[in-house]
Each structure stands twice: as structure tokens, then as C-alpha cells.
């Protein structure tokens, strides 16, 4: 053993670095652990996350689309019902994945798998863990978004090159939700409280102009929906999918930039509550 060596051994070097109270600039280690862990996860389970929005698209787009016919798209032109809901489903899937990864997943690894307890007994700080986990969630979101966009292409729902920008845009959406989600998880203590997350998600999914235009609602309800983050994501992706941009486009993007920044701030402020009890 080399612990007593006077020259700087690897452990000595690792020990003599200096950091802030929360961050040891080593989120990389958390990321590489996550990638290594995917080796042992069931690949079918990974894949299944991608199938969910695709199934919705086929069912609602084809089945219901046969009855509804075409609807008015963002640019004012008529588009098929499938083309109308596809970007919305992508936004929903970005939201679901990010929220799942930053709430349930974090909660489980914290309280049941005791994974973070192990990590936090090392020189990692809580911010390393948070950044690593968010990065992994976004990576997965990126893969799903590419897959879904490809399916849209195969179904003939992509008519403009602009549509490829849906991929980075949905990563942005996921970033917004993941950073807020992790901050919120720091307030939750039991599984029952975790259920509340679902109670917020379900109406957001159903009401955010996913399956039908906002115009079916009376004006005050429209304002309410427009205040919900998912609606901005749905609108943004819908505009991108047909390449029809308006003055609202930067507002949608800005909404997510602010949400990400606010979420990261909240998460950082709450890191001690989240990881150090």
C-alpha cells in the first residue's frame, strides 16, 4: 500500500483539490456511472419509453384522424390531424421523461436504492450529482426526440427541413422541466407526495392544446392554459414542425430559458435539502 508515501500519490492529489461547498467539478463521474449502469438495464425498457408517444400518434392520429379529418395548423393552412398532434406528443413526451427522471427517479435513488448516500460520502458535492443526473435525463430525451422525429418522417408528417429543429427544441423543453422538477423534489418527502406530481401532470397533458386547439376554451381558461409551461412547448414544437414562426416564437423559447434558469437556481438553493437531510 502506498498511503504512507511522501511523494504525491494519486489519492493525495485527489485530496488536495479545493472546491466550493456544493460542487467538486466532477459531474463527469456521475455521468459515466449512469452510462455504465445502462449496460445492466433492460434495453427493452429503455426502448419502451420511446414507443409511448408513437402509440399515441398512431392511435389518435390515424384512428381519430379518420373521423376528424384535417385541422387548421399554426401557419393557417390545413394539416392532417396526425400532423397536428405529433409535435404536441413530442413536447408531452419531453416533459414526461424529464419530470420522471428528475422526480421519481431521483426520489427512488435517494430513498430506496440509497445510491446518492454512497455518492455523497465521496468528494462529490450535491451539485455534481444534480448536474450529472440532469445531463443523463437530457441525453435520453435527445435520443427519444430523434427517434420520434424519424417516425414522423416515416409517416409523412414532416414537410419542411425546419422540423428537424424539433429535436434541440424538445431537449430545451426537457431541460426546463428537469431543472424545475428536481427543485420540486427537494420539497417532497413521501411517496404520497410524489403522487401529487402526477396530479399536476395529467391535467397539463390533457388541457395544453395537445389534442385540440386552445380556441375551444372560453377566454379566461385560455389565459390559464397559456400560463402553463407545457402549452409553450406544444406551441413551439407545432410552429417548428411546419416552419411557421410568429412573434410568439421567441416568447416560447424565452419561457423555457427562464424556466431552466429559475429551475437551476431553485435546485441549487435547495440542494442541501434535496441531498443532505
Amino acid at each position: 500500500m502506498s498511503a504512507g508515501l511522501p511523494v504525491k500519490s494519486a489519492p493525495d492529489q485527489a485530496r488536495s483539490r479545493t472546491f466550493g461547498p456544493l460542487y467538486s467539478r466532477n459531474a463527469r463521474a456521475v455521468i459515466s456511472r449512469g452510462l455504465l449502469a445502462t449496460r445492466s438495464t433492460n434495453w427493452l425498457v429503455m426502448l419502451s419509453g420511446f414507443f409511448e408517444p408513437v402509440l399515441f400518434l398512431i392511435s389518435m392520429g390515424v384512428g381519430l384522424g379518420a373521423i376528424v379529418g384535417s385541422v387548421q395548423g399554426p401557419g393557417g393552412g390545413e394539416i392532417s390531424y396526425a400532423a397536428y398532434i405529433a409535435p404536441a406528443l413530442l413536447a408531452v413526451s419531453a416533459m414526461n421523461g424529464a419530470v420522471y427522471d428528475s422526480t421519481w427517479n431521483v426520489f427512488f435513488k435517494m430513498n430506496f436504492a440509497k445510491l446518492y448516500q454512497g455518492m455523497l460520502y465521496t468528494s462529490l458535492g450535491p451539485l455534481d450529482v444534480a448536474l450529472g443526473e440532469i445531463f443523463l435525463a437530457l441525453l435520453r430525451g435527445l435520443l427519444y426526440a430523434m427517434g420520434f422525429t424519424a417516425v414522423m418522417g416515416v409517416m409523412g408528417l414532416i414537410t419542411t427541413p425546419w422540423a428537424l429543429l424539433m429535436v434541440p427544441a424538445s431537449v430545451l423543453i426537457a431541460f426546463g422541466f428537469a431543472s424545475i422538477g428536481m427543485g420540486i423534489t427537494s420539497f417532497l418527502k413521501t411517496f404520497q407526495q410524489m403522487d401529487w406530481v402526477n396530479f399536476v401532470m395529467l391535467p397539463m397533458f390533457l388541457f395544453s392544446a395537445t389534442f385540440y386547439p386552445l380556441s375551444v376554451y372560453p377566454q379566461p381558461i385560455q389565459w390559464l392554459i397559456q400560463a402553463m409551461p407545457l402549452w409553450h412547448g406544444v406551441e413551439l414544437l407545432r410552429q417548428i414542425s411546419v416552419g411557421a414562426f410568429t412573434a410568439a416564437t421567441p416568447v416560447h423559447i424565452g419561457h423555457y430559458l427562464v424556466m431552466t434558469a429559475a429551475g437551476m437556481l431553485l435546485t441549487t438553493l435547495r440542494l442541501r435539502q434535496l441531498f443532505l437531510k
Binding site: 381519430l64 391535467p203 385540440y212 375551444v216
Partner: peptide, 19 residues
């Protein structure tokens, strides 16, 4: 309580206008 109210409203009222 929440599930039926949310779904019936979204589908039965919202989507219904389209359908």
C-alpha cells in the same frame, strides 16, 4: 375523483368540439 373529471372534461368537452 381527479382522473374522471380531467379526462371527461378534456375529451368529452374539449375534444368533443372538434369531433
Amino acid at each position: 375523483v381527479g382522473h374522471p373529471v380531467a379526462y371527461l372534461f378534456a375529451m368529452g368537452v374539449g375534444l368533443a368540439t372538434l369531433v
